[in-house]
Write a protein that binds this DNA or RNA. Structure first.
Lengths: 204, 204
DNA sequence: GGTCGGCGGTGACAAATGTCATCGGGTGCC
DNA sequence: GGCACCCGATGACATTTGTCACCGCCGACC
């Protein structure tokens, strides 16, 4: 542990990001070398400063944390990526692990925990919040087929079947079949409840 | 300004709250006298420590920031209340001002701004984020009657008309009338789109 | 080759939903 | 008193939606 850990912080909330940076600066083996307020900016800062660890907020303008993580994996394979999230829906954890994220934690952890986890991740370890992990395991995989997911996503804003069919370039009958099937798999009464359930599980 | 400003911090995200506390502690005229992670806890800490300024997150378990603000207004009329929010929907600002909140700002402000605004509010001033204010003005008041709002709220989770009627103790026909009227006023195609629109405006 | 599942579609039917007119009771305002 | 508006309800009607059965096509897997 001869060198200090070089950290990139990405969070669109300036207040939070600044506070975190100030707080991590108190740890004498950590250095915040770059900050970003959006997904694309995070990528740019990462390639410019080549941090050891990137701490990404899940929800950011432009590209979200997962998209940035996926891109970083290709551009900077040596950079470890951690995701910090406010409300952690289970499905995100699974997707995060798939794109090589080494740490996944809610914002309810304490600052000293965060510093510790950064060190763990830097050393090659992994950390996943136990509660989020339990939820993810109990939630399991999405039972929906890719197409069902697509169509359900188009239904998410309350559009009519006709609109969905139009945007998906499908016949209305097909759309109804998919939505009916998806609602059945999710145990929902109608497509709108299905959207809500899929959202809660992070399957959307 | 002989005394230091006594501040209460309430935010359910431990990481954020701790970071903010550390950051405000750097200002030599501010003291964080209490922290809370939920609405009820915020109330309890406030009555126990009688802060000059309460900085409340909008979304908290138990009671949200607005409910805490309303309660504080009665219990501690001398305590100035500020709301800090992640994604600020317009309607909340209006409701916040109605319950006597003196400061309303998004988490995108910088830490030094926050400290400055705390001082402003403490001195009896007000501060509202200009962008949120503009949105609130353009959004205007909700066109919905109280009952329409109630029923729309019950429809928010994708329930069927029958369930809504049951929970609201209304006839199904009445429920449909209210929803139809609400959808019409909001320019929505159906009640689900109406829910989305009302949510976006903070009218729900 | 056979089977299974996903994809896209059609047709038909029942149920849910949206829409409209209309009613009575209440409240508040001019 | 007259008027406007909200509340709650009913009935009728057209439309949308959900559900099911069934079709062909394709790719994967055994």
């Amino acid at each position: 542990m001869t060198d200090r850990v070089r950290v990139l912080l990405a969070d669109d909330e300036h207040l939070i990001r600044g506070a975190l940076a100030a707080l991590l600066a108190l740890e004498d083996d950590l250095t915040v070398v770059a900050e970003a307020a959006s997904g694309p900016e995070a990528l740019a800062m990462a390639t410019a400063h080549r941090p050891d660890v990137a701490v990404l907020d899940l929800q950011m303008p432009g590209l979200d944390g997962l998209e940035v993580a996926a891109e970083l994996r290709h551009r900077l394979p040596d950079c470890r990526v951690m995701i910090v999230t406010g409300h952690g829906r289970p499905g995100y954890l699974k997707r995060a692990l798939e794109v090589g994220v080494r740490g996944f934690l809610p914002k309810t952890v304490s600052a000293s925990d965060l510093a510790g986890i950064i060190r763990t991740v830097r050393a090659g370890g992994r950390y996943v919040d136990p509660e989020l992990a339990a939820e993810a395991i109990s939630a399991g995989d999405s039972p929906l087929t890719p197409r069902e997911t697509d169509v359900l996503e188009l239904a998410a804003d309350g559009s009519s079947i006709a609109e969905i069919a139009d945007r998906a370039s499908l016949s209305q009958g097909t759309v109804r079949n998919y939505l009916s099937s998806a609602a059945g798999k999710l145990g929902a009464e109608n497509r709108h409840a299905a959207v809500r359930i899929a959202r809660e599980h992070g399957w959307l």
